[in-house]
Design a protein around this nucleic acid. Structure first.
Lengths: 197, 197
DNA sequence: GCTCTAAACGGACTATAGTCCGTTTGGTGG
DNA sequence: CCACCAAACGGACTATAGTCCGTTTAGAGC
């Protein structure tokens, strides 16, 4: 616990867990977008104000619900086996990350859409996005030391992994597998260069 | 006029214009996100229901406000001079398009954010996105005839041009110029292959 | 155990997007 | 010119996110 930060009171902790639990149960059936905040408060047996105190807004709640799944992926990246984890070929790691992230999206797109759209720029302000940005930027730096602005390029590489684009493809004109394939080729073309189709 | 489509009644036409005019005037001062639909209705001297009849929802209004500017860019692409218009080198056309689109974003990001976030998948369902998708897919097909799924790759190339990412960069950690530079290098690396920095 | 206070609570309240439906009106056919 | 009706109108109404503030309570200090 950082100095200056006080650990939350026991009732606050309890309510936070009850809320996440209630929300998780509701979200198992319906998309979060169609669940009202009041419903979640009722299901957890607390008042609406408590939901907002605990999570700030609906996007914050979505982010909290995503937290565990996202952390699993982060651990794979930090300490898991190659190609996603450290140790292997950098280019393969980049491709591996993109593919793994798309798998994660498949179960989380509904939550991510709420998290990303709750306020302007929400996606880019969250911790997880910062983490992926750093990760990708680092890989790009290793891969192309002579380039500039690796962080900007990392934004470009992450952009096709946005949740609403994934939803559009998934429930629109293409199968997830074909989309994963296209993203993989996209990243690979970028890191390897064209010509080796 | 397509058969089966009836031209709108004169009062509807008049009100639509009055609304666009009023909205344009309000948006010149404040971001559309902070202007209420009722305010716009009042400024145009009509009821709120009329706004919704004319535009469907706030996103639809934003789309209508964007229409003219977006069409200007579409015309540049279809009939303008190279590198954006037809006739020049395909790779240069792709890069030219990206740069031109970023310029367009600079004046339109506020409206686009509303248009894109009004309902899930809004960005991808609009006519303009379809137009850009076709355009980029066509260029990619010329450029890399042996690839598959040019349309999916086009999605990947358009993704970094999303309005909220642009806003994040613009009002966050980077200048527009550096961002434009990064996007340009991004597209160029993709079409040319690495190594020719 | 008692007191005191900052933290947390909860639900009434506000703001605003979007709907509904009874009323008005443009314009067409007679 | 009149009658008619589908289209359009408008504003009251609903749904829901998010705020506010008077009340309750955990837990630290004594």
């Amino acid at each position: 616990m950082r100095p200056g930060t006080r650990s939350p009171r026991s009732d606050a902790q309890r309510n936070r867990l009850a809320l996440i639990d209630a929300a998780q149960r509701l979200v198992a059936t319906r998309a979060l977008a169609s669940v009202t905040m009041e419903e979640i408060a009722d299901a957890a047996g607390v008042g609406k104000g408590t939901v907002y105190r605990a999570f700030g807004d609906k996007g914050g709640l979505a982010t909290a619900l995503l937290d565990e799944r996202e952390r699993t992926l982060q651990e794979r990246v930090l300490t898991g086996p190659p190609p996603v984890g450290p140790g292997g070929d950098t280019a393969a790691r980049l491709v591996g990350f993109a593919v793994a992230y798309l798998e994660f999206l498949d179960g989380a797109a509904d939550l991510l859409v709420v998290a990303d759209n709750s306020h302007i720029g929400a996606r880019y302000d969250t911790g997880p996005y910062g983490f992926w940005l750093m990760h990708v930027a680092t890989l790009l730096r290793e891969l192309k030391p002579d380039e500039r602005d690796h962080e900007f390029l990392a934004h470009c590489l992450l952009a096709p992994l946005a949740a609403d684009l994934y939803r559009h493809i998934r429930f629109g004109d293409g199968s997830p597998a074909r989309w994963a394939d296209a993203v993989e080729r996209w990243v690979r073309t970028f890191v390897d260069g064209p010509g080796d189709t």
